[in-house]
Structure formats: C-alpha cells, structure tokens
Amino acid sequence: MKTDIEPTSTSAGSPPQVSARSTGRAGDKIFLGLSRGSGIALLVIMAAIAGFLAYRASIAISKDEANFLTAFEWSTGSTPMRFGIAVLAYGTVVSSIIAMVIAVPIAVGIALFISHYAPRRLATPVAYVIDLLAAVPSIVYGLWGALFLVPHLTPLYTWMDKYLGWTGVLSYQGGAARSLFTVGILLAIMILPIVTSVSREVFRQVPKMHEEAALALGATRWEVVRMSVLPFGRSGIISASMLGLGRALGETMAVATVLSPSYLINVSLLDPGGGTFAQNIASHFKEANDNGRDALIASGLVLFVITLLVNGAARMIIARRKEYSGTAA
C-alpha cells in the first residue's frame, strides 16, 4: 500500500491550507502503513516459527524408527534414528509441577504482603527486590544452583529419605543432588517474580469498598483477605500461575546446568536422572549431526505447542477478567 502513494513535499513551511492538508494525508498513509506493517510482521514471525519448526520436525519424525511419543531413548547419531519424547515430557511436567507447588503459595503470600500487609515504607522496596529477582539471568541461577544449591540440598534429601523414603517417590541414594526435585526448587525461585507481580496487580485492583465493608463488619485482616481479596483475585492468581508455568516449562540453561540427565524415568524424584525438553536441546545440540538437529527441533516443536497453549489460556483468562471488571467498574 505504500507504493501507490506519490512522493510528497516534505517541507512544511506555510503553504496554503489545501496543500498542507494533502501532505498530512500522505504522511498519515505512510505512517499507518509502516505501523500496521510492523504489527503484521509480528504475526508473520509467529506463523514462521510454527511453520519452519513443523517442517523440520516432520522430516525428523518420518526418519524416526521408534515411537516419537513413547520411546525411552534418544540415539540420533547413527542412521536409523531412534528417539522419543516420553522421558522429556515426564521430566518437564514433573519439574514444572514441583515448581508450581512451591512457588504459587509463596508468591501469593508475597503479593499479599506487598499489597495488604507490609508497612507502606517497606512495600515499595520489597516490590523492587522481587523485580530484581526477575532480572537475574537464568544462567546465573544455573551456576548458583549447581555450585551452591545442589551441595546444600544433600543433607535435606538425606533427611527426607530417612523419614519419607518409604514412599518410593522421595527416596534418595546419595550422590550429588542433581535431580528433578532440585530443578523444581530452582524453577520455583525463578518463576516467583512473575507470579508475584501479576497477582499483586490483581490484588491492588480489589475494590476498596469490598474491603472497607468487611472491616466495618468487624472482620480481622485475614478475614478481609479471605472474604474480599482472594475471591476477587482468584482468576488473576490462576492466570499468574499459568504464566509462571509457561516460564518453567521453557526454562533451558538453568535446568541444563543443574540436572544430571538420563533417558530413564526414575520413580524417585530425589535421585539424579530424567530430562526436560529445553535442557535436552541445549545439552545435545553440540554433538548432534544434521538429523540429530532435526530431531531436537521436533522436540522443540512439542515444547512450543505446549507453552503456546498454556500462555494462550492464561491470557484468555486475564482478558475475560478485564472485560468483566471493566463493566463492573
């Protein structure tokens, strides 16, 4: 649409009114075209990501001798490739669930702390500190996790094994604690900021009247939170958690640094082993040949689709809430 516009005189000057108006219109068209073009470019990029990944993935899957969804192996070096995503899917889901279970209650607590509990002088710095937590690069979390967190978790795991080992899920055979559970703890720390900041925003929007009504009836602060803040913020907490889940699912380098991977599913969460989609890609990329790269792209496509669904659902919940509160206000 830009091409059919004749070049216009750029000098603004003070010509008669008519020519000034026409200059403006042409400029408007160019500007609208440029800005709309950028918006469309974004959509094209999204489509291209899906398209190119799907194309390379289809090549890889057609060469796969094993079942792509259920195989417990990843050998892409030799010509008949055998690889499957079962272990990766398990590891990704389990580590993310652990992260959610730890992070969401704490994040909601911090959000409440900032919005309703902290003295005002403390609330702003605390919010700032939580934002700083988000600014720390993931590889630094990985380094810290591998060199500080892992050795410090060993005594905790030994203790858990002593009292909860009979469950099987929480048994621990010793060695470096580079397991899915450790990954879950690290991911929990990493997604804490996003869950906190989204929940905090929602809690801040709770109508003052609701809270004051509860207070006037003699409610304690906890009862105010339970009766007016949490019900209002429920959908916000859900979508915040899903945004956090999206982060946890796709986290790469921190997991690649901390986890000691294997292509077996361990019953125990505390023993080393397992893997996640993103970690598998980062760890195996360097040694992969052309076929191997396509196989990794195939697993990346699965990750892409999963995160797309999770994030899309989270955004839909937020959008619906916005409309709802917009009409109510």
């Binding site: 796709g250 993103a278 797309l308």
Partner: peptide, 12 residues
C-alpha cells in the same frame, strides 16, 4: 499474539 509471543521459550 504479542501476549503469547512474550511466553515463547528462548530455546524455541
């Protein structure tokens, strides 16, 4: 899609 794009994992 801008919202969804925010959530694309960097590895993807």
């Amino acid at each position: 899609f801008v919202d969804v794009m925010t959530g694309i994992p960097s590895i993807v």
